[in-house]
């Protein structure tokens, strides 16, 4: 028996996403990027880390190193992996419940630290796996199974949060624009530091947003000054993750260079340690 499935990079695990699920588009974009890494002979250095949710199944579908972690905790696991072996290419996959609810503290700190990871949020704006409750990015009045009379809360804008948290690469993409998505993921991996991508990923079953996104999504023009925080914030505020939109910008909102956590914080190569001499010197 072998882990490999019928198509390149796949496994024998049967796919259990609903037909029409936005995760299919995301999977194929990731595959495309991984195939490039394979050509560059770097696939063995890749580690995918996932949370728990529909999104997280992606690691079962890819014959690549992975750590299928727990709900909300993708980032600390990914951080530990990267710190312990900085030569690895670490890519996190989280749901919006994962990243913006259960584990939001880790998200803010990953950005603050500028740890060298790529972080993809499969943002369907609903809890998929637990069958349709509202999330931090669901629009106000969203009727989920825990809020049958409509969510009483305003949605968060994760792009704004990331900009305020000092992330050095802040992007959004949409599974309905597969080329764009693959391009953004590649750029994110290339970026030395914390690269955040909010991926609009409709949940066909509990929150079908394809038409809405198809209507309002606009690619950020190349003329946008990527290093300008004010300009990035202005773009980010064009859509507040509410029910209505005039335009939903996708692309790289912001990108700057800053030393990574690994460069700043890790000790230089390990010395040999003589316990006996140390203890004699310091503990008598």
């Amino acid at each position: 028996m072998s882990l490999e499935g019928k198509t390149p990079l796949s496994t024998y695990a049967p796919n259990t996403w609903c037909p029409g699920c936005g995760n299919f588009g995301l999977l194929s974009a990731v595959k495309q990027v991984l195939l490039h890494l394979k050509e560059d002979n770097k696939l063995h250095q890749v580690v995918l880390v996932s949370g728990i949710g529909c999104h997280a199944k992606i690691v079962d579908y890819l014959a690549v190193n992975s750590f299928y972690s727990i709900h909300g905790r993708v980032l600390p696991v990914a951080w530990g992996i990267k710190m312990a072996n900085p030569s690895l290419i670490v890519i996190g996959h989280a749901g919006d419940g994962d990243a913006y609810g259960e584990g939001i503290s880790h998200l803010i700190f990953a950005a603050k630290r500028n740890t060298d990871l790529t972080f993809l949020v499969h943002n369907n704006r609903v809890y998929g796996l637990t069958t349709g409750q509202f999330t931090p990015t669901s629009p106000k009045k969203f009727k989920g199974r825990s809020t049958p009379f409509g969510s009483p809360e305003e949605p968060l804008n994760p792009i704004e949060i990331m900009l305020a948290s000092k992330a050095t690469f802040v992007a959004r993409s949409y599974v309905g624009r597969p080329k764009h998505l693959a391009y953004i993921i590649k750029e994110a991996i290339k970026h030395p530091g914390f690269a955040f991508i909010d991926v609009l990923q409709p949940c066909y079953t509990f929150f079908n947003t394809y038409n809405f996104y198809n209507q309002y999504v606009r690619e950020i023009p190349p003329s946008h000054p990527r290093e300008n925080l004010e300009a990035a914030l202005e773009l980010a505020r064009r859509w507040d993750y509410g029910e209505k939109a005039q335009e939903i910008p996708i692309g790289i909102f912001y990108q700057i260079k800053r030393p990574t956590f690994e460069e700043e914080a890790l000790i230089k190569k390990h010395p040999s340690f003589d316990l006996k001499a140390y203890v004699a010197q310091n503990h008598s």
Binding site: V77, W79, I81, A84, A265
Partner: peptide, 20 residues
């Protein structure tokens, strides 16, 4: 390493151990 909370501490430790 001093992280944001104990949850991050233990999960980062597991990430580290996963790499050996």
């Amino acid at each position: 390493i001093h992280p944001e909370n104990e949850i991050a501490a233990v999960l980062a430790a597991l990430g580290s151990a996963y790499t050996g």
